Simulated scan of single mutants.
Amino acid sequence: MSSLPATSGLISVLGFGYDNNKKDHRVVKISYSRFDNNKGFNPLVEVYSVWERIWKTIPADYLADNSISSVSFSHCFLNGVIHWLAFETGPFNYVAKWVLLFNVVEETFQKMELPEAIVKMLTTCTGTPDLFEYKTKLSLLHCEDFECHMSTFAKCQIWVKEEEESCWCMILNITVDDDHYLLSQVAYLDKDGKLFGFYRKSDRVMVLYDVSKRQFIELGFHYSYDASSKFASFTDSLVLLDQDTTDLTKMMHSKCTSTHLQLEMN
């Protein structure tokens, strides 16, 4: 596989998607200046095709004065579109105000404004927002840690994008009780509404929160601190990146597809 293009002095954000028309996995790399005063400068946007095994640069005029939220760099691939949280470039302006969309098939960008209620929440609260797929819909998870009377609590909100334009609904707003602790930096929401990232304080057993049942469920293992820990989904699939393109023909047109891609970065 080709190496990622060199982007010295830039902050790079990756997105992974799948072109269902061409049966091709794609990697999208967006690179920004490390400085806050880069307003007016377009980022560098490059797309890698696993099928063609090449990087290509695409126009980024639409992204002028916009940056991906560097708090989490999270993204969500849904219905052929990669989604990132984004904000307007400028000094001390790091609050996400919209979702940046990249259509993998058309290779075009769009912008979706977040409702005022979500922007206000992100402005006034600490914590890391993340985008996930929840029951085939785009969702935003926001977790906030806080202390009260020598105890650590956490609040979690889940917002879901409805079919109507600019319509988001809050489906969960809980304050985690004093018996559990939320690892906000590793929190993860799966497609079925299972919220991961909690452990029980008494014995440090990891638990998940079932959004539909409104209850905690044990996972059967204990929490051990690791700054690099992160929950993620797993798709049983395979893409061999070290084979010739001709050897990939049957595989790329088979029924086996994946939304996950393992990169070899040289």
Rank of each mutant, 00 (worst) to 15 (best):
E113V: 04
L172C: 10
C156R: 05
S166G: 04
H149N: 09
L131E: 02
E144G: 01
K194H: 04
C148L: 14
K135I: 05
F146P: 06
T175L: 11
D145G: 12
L131D: 05
H180R: 13
T124I: 13
D177K: 09
E113G: 02
T136E: 03
I171C: 05
V176A: 12
T126P: 03
Y181S: 14
G197Q: 01
D190P: 13
E147F: 06
K191D: 15
W159R: 03
W159H: 08
R200D: 05
H180W: 11
G193A: 08
D130Q: 14
E133G: 08
E113Y: 09
V186S: 15
C143A: 12
H142K: 13
L182I: 08
A117L: 14
K120W: 06
E162A: 06
Q157H: 02
C125M: 14
R200S: 09
E162D: 06
M150C: 12
E106R: 14
N173E: 03
T128R: 05
I118D: 02
E107C: 04
D192T: 04
V160N: 00
K155F: 00
C167Q: 11
F132H: 15
K120N: 14
W168Q: 01
K194W: 01
Y134C: 09
E147V: 08
K137S: 14
T123D: 08
E165A: 11
E144Q: 12
D192W: 07
L122C: 00
L189S: 07
V105L: 11
L182D: 06
C156P: 02
D145Q: 12
T124G: 01
P129V: 02
F198S: 01
E147R: 12
P129A: 07
T124Q: 15
H142N: 09
Q185N: 13
E147C: 09
V105C: 12
C169Q: 13
W159V: 10
T108N: 01
H180A: 11
C148G: 05
L141F: 08
E144R: 12
T123S: 15
Q157W: 01
Q157V: 05
L141P: 02
P115M: 04
V160W: 00
S151Y: 14
K194D: 00
M112P: 00
E165K: 09
E107Y: 04
L138I: 05
C167H: 12
D178H: 10
E133C: 13
K191R: 14
K137C: 15
L140P: 03
W159T: 09
I174Q: 12
G193N: 06
C156T: 15
C148Y: 15
T152V: 07
T175R: 15
E107M: 05
L141N: 00
D192G: 05
H180T: 11
R200V: 07
N173T: 03
G193V: 11
F153M: 10
E144W: 07
D145F: 11
Y134K: 03
D192H: 09
Y199S: 08
T126R: 15
A187I: 07
F132P: 07
S166Q: 10
G127K: 00
Y181K: 14
C169I: 12
K120Y: 02
K161Y: 00
T152H: 15
G197E: 02
D192A: 07
K155V: 01
A117G: 07
M170R: 15
T175W: 08
A187T: 13
Q185I: 08
V160G: 02
V105Y: 00
E162H: 10
F132G: 06
D130I: 06
C125A: 14
